[in-house]
Each structure stands twice: as C-alpha cells, then as structure tokens.
C-alpha cells in the first residue's frame, strides 16, 4: 500500500514500468535500515541464542565453550537465579509505580497548569531533563553519599525515631528501588507530558457540567484520555528498570542481598566467564519482558499505540 501511494508520478498516469521502478527505489531506500537490523540485531541475537545452548569443552580452559544443544542451561539458571528474576520484576514494578505517582502530577502541572505560561512551561521541561546533563552514574553515586549511614538523611530519621538506631538505607532494597525510581522519573514524565499537554480541557469542563466531582472527572475523563502517555511512560520505565544493573550493584546502591538479573548476567559474563548461562539469562529476561509487555498492552486495550 505504501509503495502504491509512492508510485503516483507527476503525470498521474501509472504504468507497470513506473510501479516497478518506484518499488525498486522503495526497497533501495529500505536497504540501509534492513542491513542495519540484520547486522546489529539479528546476527547478535542468533549468536546469543547459539551461545545460550553451548556446553563446556571437556578438559577445556575457563571461558571456553563449544556449540551444542544444551537446553539444561535454561533449567540451571532458572534454578540458580529464579529468586533474582522475581526480585528484578518486583523492584522494577515498584519503581514504575513510584515514578508514575511522582511523574503524573508533575506532568499534569507542566502540561495543564502551566499552559498559559509558555516560558515557564519550557523552563519546567528543561528542569525535568536537566539531570541528563550529568552522567547518571555520578548522580547515583551522589545518592549513595546522601543516604550514607553518617549522612544527614539517616541521622535525621534516626533522631525522629523513624529509623531504629542500627538501621541503614544504602545497600538495601529501599535504596535500590529509590534509585531506580529516581533515575527513570524523566522517562515517565516526558510521555505523560506530551499527552497531558494535548488534553482537551473542554472535556474536563463537560465532566463537571455533568455534576461529576473532580475525582470522578479525573478518573473517567482525564485518565482515559492520557492513557497513551501512561502506557508508554510505564513501558519506558519498566523495561530498562528490569534489566538495570547499576542501581542494584554493590558499587552503587545495592549490596549482596539486592542483586537483579543484570547483576547476575554481568557476574556470569565478566567474572565467571560462564557465557552460556549469561546468554540464557539474557534471553529469559528478553522473553519475560516481551510476554509481560504484550499482556499489559493487550489488557489496557491500546494495541493501536504500538
């Protein structure tokens, strides 16, 4: 269809020859994209799948594997790292919900309340994006210092008896989820902003005209209208958060009890050099996310967004 639309020449007369030529041009234009996908997506993916089925060479050195069909790799990693997988999705889901709770009012304020002040609106948007100007590794390390045992946050909370005396924040699930939520809030806010910015306020007004209270109007009018933003925001947060290995790493906000899938893959790949396990973990992560996202999109009835 796209090619048909492409074929209308200036004369308006469509002959077989011109259709053929322009279809060739269309394919030619697609070529770099297709080549890119084959080279940088399909080939590495195939290599990953092959690696995930490899087995050790009897008597071979560390990190040396040969091609085989060793499906037990998958069973082994699920047994070894099932807990880490569940933990990853739990952390990512919690962080996504927190980011939504913080990001939605923020986006609403910028997109709706600041609509009459374009200058302030742009300024607020710049502020949302501003953290990206500093490496997120540095920002995460900064949080580690702020939340440190002798830092003012912990000291204040202990004084207020919000934390027991021997408790700490860094290296716990709380600091990891906090870090994930913090790092992904802009990814949640920006798509929400784009839908809220286009929200037709006359519809909200109509809601109150029909005697709905503000809460009912919000639930029945605003939320459904901004659903596309909520869906893309949560996906943009959840998917990278589930595979994140920085926040949960012992060098940043995590510890030995907070390792997520990303940390498992890193350890298997770089330290243990167990490439088959690392590859099968990666594929499990990919397929789990694919299934979760597909179900989510289907349930929320927004297939046409994708």
């Amino acid at each position: 269809m796209a090619i048909g639309a492409f074929s209308h020449g200036p004369s308006g007369v469509t002959t077989d020859a011109t259709v053929q030529r322009s279809s060739r041009i269309a394919w030619l234009l697609l070529l770099p994209g297709i080549a890119y996908l084959i080279l940088f997506f399909l080939v590495p993916l195939a290599s990953l799948v092959m690696t995930s089925f490899q087995e050790t060479i009897p008597g071979g050195f560390i990190g040396e594997y040969q091609n085989a069909f060793r499906w037990e790799n998958y069973v082994e990693v699920l047994g070894l790292y099932g807990e880490h997988t569940m933990r990853s999705f739990l952390y990512a889901a919690t962080a996504t919900i927190i980011a939504l709770i913080i990001g939605y009012p923020l986006a609403y304020f910028i997109g709706v309340k600041l609509r009459r002040f374009p200058l302030l609106q742009s300024l607020a948007l710049v502020l949302v994006i501003a953290p990206f100007f500093i490496s997120f590794l540095l920002r995460t390390l900064a949080w580690k210092q702020i939340l440190a045992d002798e830092g003012f946050v912990v000291a204040t909370m202990k004084t207020l008896q919000l934390l027991p005396d021997d408790a700490h924040i860094t290296g716990t699930a709380i600091s990891v989820v906090f870090g994930l939520a913090y790092n992904f809030i802009p990814f949640m806010t920006l798509p929400l902003y784009t839908t809220l910015e286009r929200l037709d306020l006359r519809l909200v007004e109509a809601g109150s005209d029909l005697y709905a209270n503000p809460f009912t109007t919000f639930v029945k009018v605003t939320v459904p209208l901004t659903m596309p933003g909520i869906i893309s925001g949560t996906l943009l947060t959840f998917i990278p958060a589930a595979g994140d290995y920085v926040n949960a790493s012992a060098n940043f906000l995590g510890s030995t009890s907070t390792a997520m899938i990303g940390n498992v893959i890193e350890s298997n790949f770089l330290v243990l050099q167990n490439f088959p396990h690392a590859a099968s973990m990666s594929l499990i992560l990919m397929s789990a996310i694919l299934v979760l996202v597909a179900t989510y999109v289907k349930k929320s009835g927004t297939e046409d967004l994708l």
Binding site: T256, N263, V264, S267, V271, L272
Partner: peptide
C-alpha cells in the same frame, strides 16, 4: 569462583 559469586549475588 562459582561458590564465591553465589554469595556475592545473595
């Protein structure tokens, strides 16, 4: 190393 990494990953 596998035993040690298992402790590190918790």
């Amino acid at each position: 190393q596998a035993a040690f990494q298992a402790v590190l990953l918790g």
